[in-house]
Design a protein around this nucleic acid. Structure first.
Length: 293
DNA sequence: CGCATCCCCTGCCTGC
DNA sequence: TGCAGGCAGGGGATGC
């Protein structure tokens, strides 16, 4: 389920576990997810401790005290859950699940303090890698990544530069990881609606002749940040509730203005339009043909 | 090179 | 009730 806000929520939940205790052992329940696990995956993690857990696009990266980086991607259906963690919430309660392996539990990290982090992924589009920290930036998965959408690097001029002469629809351009890294299908739709830009417009048509940015790109850059920030805040709330550290959608899904709302009235004030669904690059696009131009 | 299509895999929902 | 078909939030490979 994860898009960037969900990955960020998962990262926030996992960070204290990964950085406060060493990995005692790792159980692999199968040899591969999307890719085979790296050679000696469990052995290279045993005894290691993470100095940090950060996010780039939709990747989570744990910097280990061995000099290696554990890279984790949730794909379409990956999630983590935490078990066996001491909680200040319910002192004395036996809330620790004695679960046997659930279906599709593929990896279990056992930590020295007794916590377990379990990776579950029915579709197995997720993956984990172990790479030297020093060369991570040049790894094929990371070398070509575009602008981090929640950073200061995302602004109208940067979008103008990236969109110049691009004939692909702006929706496709927003999903291109080489342009904006980590914006997924839902939030691309949501951002375009908030910016009142049609997903069908050629990306290059949003750039001024001079190559400079336009009002539309100013709105788009702001809309991307705004919708992601709101979703991260919503995910963070559910995390603080201690209900889901697992990356399923938080209640922000109830705030979608267009995604999965085909046929509904456009939520833009005074707009009489109706949300439409089309397919672009093989993926659903939801938008309002009336107010998105 | 830029862009569209297809595919990896499983689960869930819809319609017959 | 069962079953077939379509669809899913990611992203890489392929081919035009």
């Amino acid at each position: 389920m994860p898009e960037l806000p969900e990955v960020e929520t998962v990262r926030l939940g996992l960070e204290p576990v990964f950085t406060s205790s060493a990995i005692a052992s790792v159980e692999l329940r199968r040899g591969d997810l999307r890719f085979p696990f790296p050679p000696r995956f469990a052995a290279r993690l045993k005894g290691r401790r993470a100095r940090s857990l950060y996010r780039r696009a939709k990747y989570m990266i744990a910097k280990l005290d061995s000099g290696e980086a554990l890279v984790m991607h949730l794909g379409m259906s990956g999630s983590f859950r935490i078990e066996g963690e001491k909680s200040s919430h319910a002192p004395g309660a036996f809330h620790v699940k004695r679960s046997g392996a659930g279906a599709h539990d593929h990896v279990v990290f056992h930590f020295a303090n007794g916590a377990r982090v379990i990776y579950n992924d029915p579709r197995r589009f997720g993956f984990m890698l172990l790479e030297p920290q020093a060369t991570l930036a040049t790894h094929p998965l990371f070398a070509g990544l575009g602008i981090e959408p929640l950073s200061r690097d995302l602004h109208a001029a940067a979008l103008a530069k990236a969109f110049t002469r691009r004939k692909a629809p702006v929706k496709a351009a927003l999903l291109d990881q080489r342009i904006v890294a980590g914006l997924g299908n839902i939030y691309a739709c949501e951002a375009l609606h908030r910016a009142r830009i049609s997903p069908l417009r050629a990306a290059g048509s949003l750039v001024a002749k001079s190559g400079k940015s336009t009002d539309a790109l100013v709105r788009l850059a702001a809309a991307i940040k705004e919708v992601l920030c709101e979703a991260v805040a919503a995910g963070g709330s559910t995390l603080r509730d201690h209900r889901q550290a697992d990356g399923t959608l938080g209640y922000f899904q109830h705030s979608f203005r267009v995604y999965d709302r085909e046929g509904a009235a456009c939520p833009t004030p005074r707009c009489k339009g109706q949300i439409a669904r089309i397919v672009q690059s093989g993926r659903s696009t939801f938008f309002c043909p009336t107010c998105q131009k």
